[in-house]
Design a protein around this nucleic acid. Structure first.
Lengths: 134, 134
DNA sequence: TATTGTTATACTCTATAACTATA
DNA sequence: TATAGTTATAGAGTATAACAATA
């Protein structure tokens, strides 16, 4: 009873960040899931749709609409995998990379403000620890 | 690009915790929101339904069903506020406190396992920092 | 026969707006 | 007139199963 549950603490912190992200994403005309997809594509390179869905913790059937929109906007491309023509390889276009960079710059600036409430040591520990919890 | 977004890190960590919580909550026959309500009731005392909904970050109309179920199970009581008979004061029953203690014990044990992956210093910093981010 | 991407369908969750009873 | 709790309804989000093309 002395403290809140870890889950509640993480969820509240995540919610605060997401609420701060929403207007930034809206300004760029990108949904949260589309941004998540772009981020993952910039990181691991050229995954198949199924691999991307799994990496996002998202369902492959729900991902379709996200990718349809991103493709229509010219931010990604889909091409059949040479070794398995059932699968489609997803790639970021130059426009996709530019869009991601622009959105991410705004989000990082917002994060920097939030993290400024912490000391340097706290900030470093938090960012080192969170990836290991996930 | 060197690290993931803070929001993504928090969301992934929260998801991992919630997935570990689900079977524990199921075993006690309690939903996540019901558990959240019980936890908040044990903390701040005897709030009105509206105050409880706001504290949970939940909608007052959605809270109704949660409280209906908890009341039917004898875990909470609802009584009209003496000073404003429109409002209803929500109280934990003895059974409600016992249920909360039982569920929370299981969840804290699970959390302890997760947190055991961290050093003492990391653990303390994380738990000190998260409430300030929320 | 199994799997990838896709589509369709059903279900849950959430948001919004009314309604009642009190104020 | 406004507010707390409640109810009803519409919309968004999610899960599931089926389908075509390929393996």
């Amino acid at each position: 009873m002395e403290r809140e549950d870890l889950g509640a603490l993480l969820a509240r912190a995540a919610r605060r960040i997401f609420e701060a992200e929403r207007p930034l994403l809206d300004a760029h005309g990108v949904t949260m899931w589309a941004y998540a997809a772009l981020s993952l594509l910039a990181r691991g390179s050229a995954p198949t749709q199924l691999a991307l869905a799994e990496a996002m913790g998202y369902d492959k059937s729900r991902l379709i609409k996200i990718l349809d929109d991103l493709e229509a906007e010219g931010l990604i491309t889909r091409r059949p995998d040479a070794t398995d023509r059932r699968a489609k390889v997803v790639d970021l276009t130059a426009e996709g990379r530019a869009k991601l960079a622009a959105v991410q710059a705004d989000i990082r600036a917002m994060e920097a403000e939030v993290l400024a409430e912490l000391s340097t040591r706290e900030r470093e520990t938090l960012l080192a620890v969170l990836p290991r919890l996930a």
